[in-house]
Design a protein around this nucleic acid. Sequence first.
DNA 1: CCATCATATATCGAGTTGATATATATCACT
DNA 2: AGTGATATATATCAACTCGATATATGATGG
Lengths: 192, 192
Amino acid sequence: MDARVLCLGALHFGDASGYEIKKLFEEGDFSFFYETSFGSIYPALSRLVEDGLALVSEQAQDKRPDKKVYSITDKGRDLFAESLREPPTPDKIRSDFCFLMLFAHLLPPALIDRLIRGRIAWYRHHIGQMESCDAQEAPLGGRLINGLGLAIYRSAAAYLEENRASFVAGLQRKDARAEEQSGASKVPAVAS
Amino acid sequence: MDARVLCLGALHFGDASGYEIKKLFEEGDFSFFYETSFGSIYPALSRLVEDGLALVSEQAQDKRPDKKVYSITDKGRDLFAESLREPPTPDKIRSDFCFLMLFAHLLPPALIDRLIRGRIAWYRHHIGQMESCDAQEAPLGGRLINGLGLAIYRSAAAYLEENRASFVAGLQRKDARAEEQSGASKVPAVAS
DNA sequence: CCATCATATATCGAGTTGATATATATCACT
DNA sequence: AGTGATATATATCAACTCGATATATGATGG
């Protein structure tokens, strides 16, 4: 799903500027399941206009920088509907947090504890956001995806809440054992 | 988290070739939460060797192409441990499936139904895989992440199973109403 | 008064993706 | 025996994306 199709999707909800489309990915309907950056949005919008899939109208604003408001054309709508028909590629995920946890034994347990607590707080924050914007949104699909996101975040938060303490305790026990071994000169290690 | 750090993490588990590291991301411990491609792995490994963070030994194999087996150096281990200490960047997700569902009203309900069923099957498949390789793995963190993945996939699959039928039925009702309106010439529409 | 944030567009280097090329060997099927 | 598919294995490349930075203005807050 390239940036042009994503922008067409955004414009399907109504006219928007590049900046507003970015916000859709940062805080809006797309934020739960898709990311993208200005570096792909702005060139994508330019190409949509070039190809006749969108129109642009420059609007001078006072007290604000000029705005370029894009709108989707019929040709754009057709191409978008077509694009949706090709089979979706599998989800792509990159989670530094999960990668880090795999190597938790290389870091101080206190740091790991903080990271997990932060993660739980992050989930709780987004759950709150999703719950509040739940009021029947325009597209039917929006509610399905909102519900899916809520289900996933709730279960993830619950799992981490249930397992955080014992996981960190396990890391601390391991650290204690390691120190015992390296400090063996003090008290001769006796085979158990 | 760039490809060099990811490769160092992979080599932390033991010596490996680029091909084997890729498999770790495709089917192995990393597959649930991280993706990457040959195009970033091979250059990353070359640079690790250049910078003295890894060593390489070429192994001629009979009946197979030559293999380049990489191993992490002490310097590499140090740099890896350091890299882990910088705060993890937020997860990046790109889900064509979720994007598609947002625009479900633009596609035939039967297609949406198939896509959701396929998604559930995908979740079930990976849940099975994760359950089977659950046997106490080497790193403590592995079990935490495995459990998190299981919790997420199970709740996602359950949510879609619970909501699939009614969602598709909702789409069909909407389609029927739309057809009714466009075919209004046949039977005059009477305001309800 | 100064720093930070929000609005708004744009660009650029560095890095990544997904496809493709190159080889060899095995396995199933006809 | 041949055909196509799959697995092992490395490597490259165009197109694309990311994250940072530049530019400009106004509002907000300590």
